[in-house]
Simulated scan of single mutants.
Amino acid sequence: MNPHSPALAGVELSLNRQVQPLVEQLVAQAAALRVAVRRDPLGPTIVDAGIEAPGSIAAGLLIGEICMGGFGQVGLRSGAVDGWPSWLEARSSQPVLACLASQYAGWSLAASKEETGGKKFFSLGSGPARALAAKEALFAELGYRDRAERGVIVLEVDRAPPAVILEKLLRDCGLAPEALTVVLTPTSSLAGTTQVVARVLEVALHKAHELGFDLSQVVDGVATAPLPSPSPDGVEAMGRTNDAILYGGRVHLAVRGGDDAARDLAQRLPSRNSKDYGRSFAQIFKDVEYDFYKIDGALFAPAEVWVSNVDSGRTWHAGALDMDLLRKLWLDAE
């Protein structure tokens, strides 16, 4: 538990209002981005970014910014000199708001076979609508809840959510049916892989929170990670996005406060502090019989961390990328 005051207490910025121009852009440019847009019979707008529609990396970049509530930027750059051809960069000058109050996939949305009338459904919701519902204990800790007339949520799924889930979203977010947009991004798609790897900064913020660092002292952040090709296998696709961050994620945080706290954060944050470090995430997941809770929590962190204290001007560095491991996992031999 963070012993400090809520990081977003008094913040009046609205994620869901800020993000609306990006949502409108996604819908307006659907054909160019290779996504499909339809209106569900219940009223919400459904954006398919990789189930029936092919989707694209460009769609994933835009969805990554939507996940950050419009308070972050996600870009693509060439980076072959770093050992992989394509790299994502995520940055924000409102990192706690953009990453933890919005981008973090923390809203559990589940429905039984009886509720769906067929196959059970489960997804973790990410994006601005989380802050409208504020169902997670995290929002009380952050001291933030959004109020807006429109909302958007992103689901990592390979099928559209059933009516019972849409009804729950509308009820918990307090939205009129036509005011909700639901974006669907299976991890095995181009857009899905892209938007998950774009969470590299968010992973660092979440780990900092778990370590008890005072999030109100985090003032800026920028992060990069290599972008792998998606895999048609669901577990392998999830493994690649995690490996991109655990072994290829590089984060630079700007913080305020004491040097001791900044130095401690840099030293404790990298993924190599985990006993599970050094193997592919897909293999680790299989070894624990697909139970996330059996994985060492210290693993969920970027590979390399730089922490700069803007009050003292000092910077600390810990961890390192393991591009040899990623190339071994991702690159086919000639």
Results as ranks from 00 to 15, higher is better:
residue 227 L to S: 09
residue 324 D to A: 14
residue 303 A to M: 03
residue 255 V to W: 01
residue 116 T to Q: 07
residue 227 L to Q: 12
residue 9 A to G: 10
residue 60 G to P: 08
residue 83 G to L: 11
residue 326 L to Q: 04
residue 206 H to G: 03
residue 334 E to M: 08
residue 3 P to W: 15
residue 210 E to C: 14
residue 124 L to I: 06
residue 311 D to C: 01
residue 285 F to W: 15
residue 17 R to M: 09
residue 282 A to H: 09
residue 106 G to F: 01
residue 155 L to G: 07
residue 80 A to N: 05
residue 134 A to C: 15
residue 52 E to G: 10
residue 99 C to Y: 04
residue 63 I to C: 09
residue 280 S to W: 06
residue 181 T to V: 04
residue 316 W to E: 02
residue 164 V to A: 13
residue 176 A to P: 01
residue 164 V to F: 03
residue 63 I to E: 06
residue 183 V to W: 01
residue 235 V to T: 13
residue 173 C to K: 03
residue 286 K to Y: 13
residue 77 R to H: 08
residue 195 Q to D: 12
residue 278 G to A: 02
residue 298 A to R: 15
residue 247 Y to K: 09
residue 105 A to D: 02
residue 187 T to N: 11
residue 220 D to L: 02
residue 240 R to D: 07
residue 104 Y to P: 00
residue 134 A to D: 04
residue 185 T to W: 00
residue 236 E to W: 03
residue 53 A to F: 04
residue 154 V to C: 10
residue 150 R to C: 01
residue 67 C to D: 07
residue 152 V to C: 09
residue 110 A to T: 12
residue 142 L to E: 01
residue 69 G to N: 10
residue 266 A to R: 01
residue 70 G to S: 07
residue 127 G to L: 02
residue 264 D to S: 13
residue 146 D to Y: 10
residue 159 R to A: 11
residue 326 L to Y: 06
residue 99 C to W: 05
residue 173 C to M: 12
residue 208 A to T: 10
residue 62 L to A: 13
residue 161 P to A: 06
residue 74 V to T: 07
residue 116 T to P: 02
residue 227 L to P: 07
residue 139 F to K: 00
residue 308 S to G: 03
residue 209 H to C: 04
residue 164 V to C: 14
residue 141 E to I: 02
residue 51 I to H: 12
residue 161 P to S: 10
residue 82 D to Q: 09
residue 217 Q to E: 14
residue 112 S to K: 13
residue 40 D to V: 01
residue 191 A to G: 03
residue 271 S to D: 04
residue 242 N to Y: 13
residue 256 R to K: 15
residue 267 Q to F: 06
residue 201 L to K: 10
residue 95 P to A: 04
residue 306 W to C: 00
residue 55 G to V: 04
residue 329 L to R: 15
residue 120 K to Q: 08
residue 151 G to Y: 11
residue 218 V to A: 09
residue 203 V to P: 00
residue 165 I to K: 02
residue 54 P to G: 08
residue 295 I to D: 11
residue 245 I to M: 15
residue 191 A to N: 04
residue 147 R to A: 11
residue 112 S to F: 11
residue 161 P to G: 09
residue 234 G to E: 13
residue 242 N to D: 03
residue 287 D to N: 15
residue 293 Y to I: 07
residue 206 H to L: 12
residue 296 D to N: 15
residue 99 C to S: 14
residue 328 K to C: 02
